[in-house]
Design a binder for these strands. Sequence first.
DNA 1: GCACGATATTTGCAAATGCAAATATCGTGC
DNA 2: GCACGATATTTGCATTTGCAAATATCGTGC
Lengths: 150, 150
Amino acid sequence: MSFDLTAYLPYLINRTGAELAAAFSREIAPHGVTLQMWRVLAALHHRDGLRISDLAGLTSIDISTLSRLIGKMEKRGLVARRRGPEADGRVVAVALTPVGRATARAIVPVARRYETAALAGFTADEAAALKRMLVRVYANLGGEALDSAA
Amino acid sequence: MSFDLTAYLPYLINRTGAELAAAFSREIAPHGVTLQMWRVLAALHHRDGLRISDLAGLTSIDISTLSRLIGKMEKRGLVARRRGPEADGRVVAVALTPVGRATARAIVPVARRYETAALAGFTADEAAALKRMLVRVYANLGGEALDSAA
DNA sequence: GCACGATATTTGCAAATGCAAATATCGTGC
DNA sequence: GCACGATATTTGCATTTGCAAATATCGTGC
């Protein structure tokens, strides 16, 4: 027996994520930020002052890439690096600037609308079930189970 | 009210896909192919002789990137380009070589095992439901509904 | 309080990526 | 049967990416 690509979970997740990413990139382009920048903004909006390595975990962006991305975002005035203010001097805490916060706030409704469109035709229960299952798959892969979803 | 990242579908899909990709990349490295190459092999194993643009749709890889990737895979003897053999001369059909087919066949069991691990703790019904929902989300985003999953 | 392994971030560098322009071929109208 | 717009792929080029090495700081043992 062969291998049915169209029922292969990694394939289904990859194409859905890719489509989601491509379409959402277009949506936020007018706001002057890239998808990766939005991911950083969203993570910091969720919890400000994160360290670079925390951001890497939360955004799935490689640490070195992130280090450079933060540099660009700093230049654009979206975030600020704070070096070990009082604590560990190795750590860089990244915080939203007022502009960064405003940008994040402006995009959040777009993100919500976008999620709603992606889940068109889903009941609330179905959407919650989907999210819970994605959390379970992530946990199965060794990813840290952060918290409950939905 | 804020924005709960941990219940945001694009976030959940992105991190799951990223984790899936990273871990699977490591698994297939011994076979001498990259993740993107595996995606091409899997697509051709599913249906051989696809055109570059079909492969782009199936793998979510940009056409220009794919053109160069096919070049590399050709050099490694995994696939062969066939230019409009009798039909449309603009089209390039990509076909697996015996080596490419053998490589795909060698990786398929790894892929199956990997999917099983990702779905650990899922009943067959749950796994099928997850897949169906991912197909629905993809369709909502305007992606072509290829066929039924699971 | 100094040497040494551990942890956090940055940087060097080659490879991968993606947009846009270039190229090649097709199909149709006339 | 030739010119022209449409389609498929490749190529140019600048940016992004990620691994590995370099750098900076911490913590601990002694």
